Amino acid sequence: MGDTAVNHRLDIWAWLFFNKYRGAKFDCVGCGGGSMRRMIAEHLQKHPSQKEDLLEGKDWFMVPEGELAWITDEKRQYEWLFYKLRRMTDGGAVSLLPNLQGRSQLVAMIDIWGFNTEEKIRELKSIKKDWIQHKRGDDRFKWFADKAEGEKRCRFASDWLRKNEPHLAWRIKPIENYTELLIFFDREDLAQAELKLLLMNIRRGWNRQVSRERQTDKKQYNFILPNKVVDLLDELAEAHALRRAQVLELLIKKEHEQNVYLAGWERRF
């Protein structure tokens, strides 16, 4: 190939180029594997005239590395780009190659895509802009990124979705962390209103569970009180930013400690 330095990206593209456009019929395990360069070399030995095709094709197909620098090995970005690039580049065949994974797989889809570099650069800039805009929406999920309880909240969301929204969650593995939660919602691509309601309901469910856990040493009682007393109770609760139950609890505890109001109540009423 006129270049003794190992250039993994170029090797992958050359393998795909000969296989797709020059009828090489390579074994699929070769792409990205240890036998890839040997396959390419043997093909060129049999078809030396295709070396010129390779050199010309490289300039037509392969965008500068700088245009791909924003594509990383981050799991969430890979998942988001994989489906988008597979549809856009008709990269189904590339996605099935067993030794081509991660970022190299995404770049290969772009490199072998049958558009010239000018068109590819224009599309890549658009996709990059979409990715940046997409990540700006992560603020909606910051409640799940809490350092102390974030993973618990993510697991609760997974269980809640399976129970309450099975049409969304039936095909997913249990969500264990924040990244997996983001990937799940990236795939679902819900409408804004639907997503907002879903997240609100998950938080409500979490709050109910936490409230139940905190009240394991409490019991519920029902009392019949005169309307006037209920009004007074509401006034106290509002004045002190407390719930009715909290007002009653504080008053009962204080009276039990000091025995000021109830002592001798028979004589006063």
Rank of each mutant, 00 (worst) to 15 (best):
residue 250 L to W: 03
residue 214 R to K: 14
residue 154 C to L: 02
residue 69 A to C: 04
residue 164 N to S: 05
residue 199 L to N: 11
residue 154 C to D: 01
residue 216 T to D: 05
residue 130 D to I: 03
residue 239 A to K: 15
residue 55 L to H: 08
residue 108 A to R: 11
residue 119 E to A: 11
residue 250 L to Y: 11
residue 28 C to L: 06
residue 123 E to N: 04
residue 211 S to C: 00
residue 161 L to P: 03
residue 187 R to C: 07
residue 76 R to P: 04
residue 245 A to S: 15
residue 50 Q to V: 09
residue 23 G to T: 09
residue 243 R to M: 12
residue 56 E to F: 02
residue 242 L to C: 08
residue 262 L to T: 13
residue 10 L to T: 13
residue 11 D to E: 15
residue 2 G to P: 06
residue 130 D to M: 12
residue 191 A to M: 06
residue 267 R to L: 07
residue 246 Q to P: 09
residue 78 Y to M: 09
residue 147 K to C: 08
residue 10 L to C: 07
residue 258 Q to Y: 07
residue 17 F to S: 13
residue 138 D to F: 12
residue 9 R to M: 10
residue 244 R to V: 14
residue 8 H to T: 15
residue 177 N to S: 07
residue 218 K to D: 03
residue 141 F to L: 09
residue 50 Q to W: 02
residue 256 H to Y: 07
residue 167 H to E: 15
residue 183 I to Q: 11
residue 36 M to R: 03
residue 256 H to R: 14
residue 148 A to H: 06
residue 131 W to T: 13
residue 241 A to V: 10
residue 188 E to Q: 15
residue 136 R to P: 03
residue 68 L to H: 02
residue 245 A to F: 05
residue 178 Y to P: 08
residue 160 W to V: 03
residue 192 Q to I: 08
residue 39 M to W: 09
residue 166 P to K: 01
residue 265 W to C: 14
residue 114 G to H: 05
residue 160 W to C: 00
residue 267 R to E: 11
residue 12 I to E: 10
